[in-house]
């Protein structure tokens, strides 16, 4: 669909301007990709161009030197742990707010909205002290609980706004067939809501994968750190070997790129519809 129709001559200038911004967006990332395939000796003579000699050796080197098999396992554990906890509590709450309309549901919505806007710095330190006393520092479950709480309001609203459009007749029919509320939730609401569950899972998973501040604060044990804080340390450790650092960065980005290309519409609509998560 064309909104503002442009004349032919204008079209060319449109493409030129947009092209320049596309280069600004993508060229830095391309340099990173080039560098990941360059031998370390080439950086002195060819810092930002295409590699003259393509090598794949940087990837296994970075993988071994950074112990990335352990790191990937840590990050996957955090992502899937958060998805299980966050999406289940959010779909329960989303279902209730959409279909059961308990008294005071508005208060819950307001509470969660206020919760979203609280800056992390407000509760970071007391949370740290609380987690220390509960023995949750330097544990994955501690971080999973934090990530679930941070992302649950967004997921709850997203799921609620989808479930609210499911026709009530479906639930009435299930009720007549003798389904109680839990069965209505598991057999009717959840199977019909898979698109929104997938969107929420992608957005929440991305947030956890990329998260830095809480990972930095709550996990100091090198063996338990996720990929974001490890890459931060790795980039300082190997500051003189940019080939390794670039390869390590690409390893962090690769899963995101693959999922993004598969589910770009979902990612974009999920991330912008929330509009409330950084």
């Amino acid at each position: 669909m064309e909104v503002a129709s442009f004349r032919k001559k204008e079209l060319i200038s449109n493409y030129i301007i947009l092209g320049i911004f596309a280069i600004v967006s993508l060229a830095p990332i391309l340099v990173l990709i080039f560098n990941a395939f360059k031998p370390a000796v080439e950086f002195g003579t060819n810092p930002i161009g295409l590699p003259n000699n393509i090598t794949f050796q940087n990837f296994p080197d970075a993988w071994v030197q950074g112990e990335y098999s352990k790191i990937f396992f840590n990050s996957f554990k955090l992502v899937f742990g958060t998805l299980i906890l966050c999406i289940s509590v959010s779909s329960l709450a989303g279902f209730s707010l959409a279909k059961l309309n308990p008294k005071g549901a508005n208060l819950v919505a307001i509470y969660l909205l206020v919760g979203i806007s609280i800056p992390a710095q407000m509760f970071l330190l007391p949370l740290f002290l609380l987690w220390k006393n509960l023995g949750l520092l330097n544990t994955h479950i501690g971080l999973i609980i934090i990530y679930s709480a941070l992302n649950a309001p967004f997921a709850t609203f997203l799921i609620r706004s989808y479930m609210i459009r499911l026709p009530d007749e479906l639930f009435d029919a299930a009720k007549i067939d003798g389904a109680n509320i839990f069965q209505q939730f598991f057999r009717v609401a959840i199977p019909l809501s898979w698109p929104v569950l997938l969107t929420s899972a992608l957005v929440v998973g991305l947030a956890v994968w990329n998260e830095f501040l809480f990972a930095l604060t709550f996990v100091q044990d090198e063996n338990l750190k996720p990929i974001s804080t490890i890459l931060f340390a790795f980039s300082w450790r190997f500051i003189n070997n940019q080939a390794l650092v670039s390869a390590a960065s690409i390893m962090m980005v690769a899963p995101v790129v693959i999922l993004f290309l598969l589910f770009q519409k979902r990612f974009i609509s999920g991330l912008t519809s929330g509009g409330l998560k950084g």
């Binding site: 906890l85 289940s88 509590v89 959010s90 329960l92 709450a93 279902f95 209730s96 707010l97 059961l100 309309n101 308990p102 549901a105 819950v108 509470y111 969660l112 919760g115 609280i118 407000m122 509760f123 970071l124 330190l125 007391p126 949370l127 609380l130 609980i145 934090i146 679930s148 709480a149 941070l150 649950a152 309001p153 709850t156 939730f185």
Partner: peptide
């Protein structure tokens, strides 16, 4: 209906509300 909302409120309370009030 409230049982369904309880888990979200509980983790949100522990991670965000109580620490914020402590702050």
């Amino acid at each position: 209906a409230w049982y369904f909302i309880l888990p979200v409120l509980l983790i949100h309370l522990f991670v965000i509300a109580i620490p914020s009030i402590s702050s």
